[in-house]
Design a protein around this nucleic acid. Structure first.
Lengths: 257, 257
DNA sequence: AAAATAGTGTCTATGAGACACTATAGT
DNA sequence: ACTATAGTGTCTCATAGACACTATTTT
């Protein structure tokens, strides 16, 4: 890692000049923010949207719940850092994961300046429940106080619907993830990431209703999904249900066209 | 600015524990990436999409063209840094500006680790052309080698369609901005940010066609825009044109509902 | 048989595209 | 009068919602 020596540091420069730009450049050699990555691990089931949280046992944010996160290493990309944290803290890999937004308000961490690049990951409920239960890990249900894609912070609740206090600006980060997910649901194949490999149309509809926070028209939904060319029937049917078993479908990954 | 002293640094910790998290935390006291902000200033006219670029006069990237950018100060938010850079480097303020994506590949800057939070700003062609012409400022036209919202790097060209070499990963950053703009055009009032306060429906259609890179149906477009409730007629008409003058419209900012 | 959900067929309302037409400016 | 663009009316087609109906499993 080579560092530019802070030799060139002119006092007066014409504003907006390239030289002024480079002067500002050198200044950061002395003081830099820390850069972290936080991951919003989301799942959807009939009970609603859930997120993986960890209880902070030390200050700051002691006694509050936080997203899995950590600092970016100097030799890894942001995507790699997110994948590493997901693996180390939640024991999950090979998930859909995407960069969400970067949060950098000066006071968001009381210690010093920490800029966090937030990611969100999607996982089906079965794998979500398999998250290694380490000290303090918990699946919290998300309550969205806004409708549509307005955005804003959310509330999370634990067992018995008890509200969980969130550390830092994590309520806003989770809210941003929900907003993004709602926006992508209709136009991308993101919904399938919240389901196991095989699923019924009803399960797919449940996912859409859970994410959007409102019910959708059953007939239209079925037609749209079947006409979309993104799923195909497996020929198999679900078993051990108390009613007529539905056919199982699988998601077709868009092949190279 | 208080710094946690690097006193606590245990050698062996149970993996995935909170203590391990905090150890990783302390490590960053010693080595941190720099954090920059780059702004993609976009405008649309019948000639196509254009972006504001600056010639780099020093290494790295000497002789190449770069987005206006600079380092985030320790006491300002990311949004504030973007607004400051837009004002100082392009002389523009009060524009639509939004965070785009954060680029952090380890090798993207050959000097040392620089993570850049990219923003994009939209401006109408008249104001774009008013950008203070300082040393090296230039409006480059964007050529998009992909269709729809596939994404990927773009090419930029200067006068006489001469290709301009871009510094760092700025071709990818501009491509990401174009992709985002295309995605938002149909579902948000973002198109109006590329027009002056009063505009004709034809001008609005030009903006959509320029951004999307393909022609749209005239009748349907007019109906959609008029039915959308986002614009209203001013009663005035354009003047000094070689044909029937069109009515001028204005964008209605969504009032609190 | 009753209950519950899966899955199908048909009608209707809405909105986009296509096309034909009229209107109004400059030359 | 001719040309270019603005703006309107109407037809058709595709799709979403609504509703009624049939199908298949467990209890």
């Amino acid at each position: 890692m080579t560092r530019k020596t802070p030799s060139k540091k002119p006092d007066s420069l014409p504003p907006d000049s390239e030289a002024a730009f480079l002067a500002g450049y050198d200044a950061t050699v002395f003081e830099r923010p820390s850069v972290a990555v936080d991951v919003v691990v989301l799942t959807a089931s009939r009970g609603g949207l859930r997120v993986a949280l960890y209880l902070r046992s030390e200050h700051p944010g002691k006694g509050r719940w936080a997203l899995p996160g950590g600092f970016v290493r100097m030799d890894e990309s942001l995507d790699a850092a997110a994948a590493r944290l997901l693996r180390d803290k939640a024991g999950l890999s090979d998930l859909f994961i995407e960069q969400l937004y970067t949060f950098g308000a000066p006071g968001r961490d009381p210690r010093w300046r920490i800029i966090t690049v937030a990611y969100y990951a999607l996982v089906d409920p079965r794998r979500f429940d398999e998250i290694r239960v380490e000290k303090g890990a918990r699946a919290a249900s998300i309550h969205v106080p806004w409708s549509g894609e307005e955005g804003g912070p959310v509330e999370v609740r634990g067992d018995a619907d008890k509200p969980l206090p969130l550390a830092f600006d994590h309520a806003e980060i989770i809210g941003t993830a929900v907003k993004r997910l709602r926006g992508k649901l209709d136009y991308t194949p993101v919904g399938f990431q919240l389901l196991p490999a095989q699923f019924t149309l009803r399960a797919l509809q449940d996912v859409h209703e859970t994410v959007r926070g409102e019910s959708v028209n059953k007939d239209s939904f079925r037609r749209r999904m079947l006409a979309g060319g993104l799923i195909e029937a497996t020929g198999e049917h679900e078993r051990e249900v108390e009613h007529r078993p539905a056919e199982l479908y699988r998601f077709i990954r868009r092949s190279a066209v």
